[in-house]
């Protein structure tokens, strides 16, 4: 026993790398080997409830602040939130504060349109804007004077001619703001520069690493809940999936009856995530045992 742990203590780190790699790879190739129930986190529930409380015809501003490198975590959230919004007949406005934001937003919208769940029209049910340089300055400008900074939409159509843009002048004309963020500028800037001073409800989905920095805002209510990393995305996907399946039966007028609903990307990845976490914890425990024996040997 003791020998085993001392050997384990001096293990080559490449063995750890290999095991971690396998723990992610195997559940991805064979997803049905490990299936686990998903429990909804409190903060995810708050996000869901805040969006569920919105009414038909409300306007929601979505801000895309992530890129290809953090796409696995944040993108599934964006798709799930968009599905939730469209199923309630809410108008969606998309802005991007990261250079890669518009590409991500386009991918998410393409996915929604390809799923054929909703009858939505560009410029009427949703509108997209191009990336603007400046980070927090752009947020400030959105808060004060939306039309000062955005003159035309993603398709170069002047916003005066877009029906969806009627009555939108600053951030207070939106009923809700949702921010998908992976860094700076991100949800902290939205709290500081727009939503807290102007008292517009704000919620956010972000990468795991940002969560501890954002949590003070959640606790103080400046953020309405938070979707935390891939598990947050999976939980939200699950809730939206259940909601959509339910609405499909209830003949929701915004959902196409013949479309089929998929569970989403993050949902399928959760088993890989779980196994990797478990392996990590096992490593930590074994590492501590070997550390204990090592110390005892030294006296």
């Amino acid at each position: 026993m003791e020998r085993f742990f001392t050997i384990f203590g001096s293990i080559d780190r490449r063995v750890i790398f290999l095991l971690i790699g396998l723990s992610v790879l195997i559940p991805l190739i064979k997803p049905d080997w490990v299936e686990l129930p998903i429990k909804i986190d409190n903060n995810t529930q708050i996000v869901y409830d805040s969006i569920a409380d919105l009414n038909e015809g409300d306007r929601v501003l979505l801000s895309f602040e992530y890129g290809a490198s953090t796409k696995p975590e944040v993108h599934p959230m964006a798709v799930a939130v968009l599905k939730h919004l469209f199923s309630k007949g809410i108008k969606v406005y998309i802005v991007s504060l990261w250079p890669e934001g518009p590409i991500m937003a386009k991918l998410a919208m393409d996915e929604i349109i390809a799923s054929n769940l909703f009858n939505i029209e560009d410029g009427k049910d949703y509108v997209m804007f191009d990336y603007k340089v400046g980070g927090s300055i752009v947020i400030k400008n959105i808060a004060d004077d939306f039309r000062g900074i955005y003159k035309q939409d993603y398709n170069k159509i002047p916003i005066e001619t877009l029906p969806i843009m009627q009555g939108i002048y600053n951030v207070q004309d939106f009923d809700f703001v949702f921010d998908f963020s992976a860094g700076v500028p991100g949800n902290a800037e939205w709290v500081q520069y727009a939503c807290d001073p102007k008292e517009v409800p704000l919620s956010s989905g972000c990468t795991s690493i940002m969560v501890t920095d954002a949590i003070p805002y959640v606790e103080s209510g400046q953020l309405r809940g938070i979707l935390a990393g891939m598990p947050g995305a999976a939980e939200y996907e699950k809730m939206v999936y259940e909601y959509l399946s339910n609405e499909l039966v209830n003949n929701n007028k915004y959902i196409n009856q013949n479309a089929n609903i998929d569970k989403g990307k993050a949902f399928a990845r959760m088993s890989a995530q779980s196994v990797a976490h478990l392996l990590m914890v096992i490593f930590i425990i074994l590492g501590n045992l070997s550390y204990y024996y090592e110390r005892r040997k030294k006296g």
Binding site: I16, I20, A68, K71, F283, I284, Y291
Partner: peptide, 22 residues
């Protein structure tokens, strides 16, 4: 860029194995 980012998963494993010691 994204693979470099993903490499972190391995580093985080070896770091926690070594660092999380009582």
């Amino acid at each position: 860029a994204s693979t470099m980012f993903a490499l972190l998963a391995f580093f985080v494993a070896s770091a926690s194995y070594r660092a999380f010691r009582i």
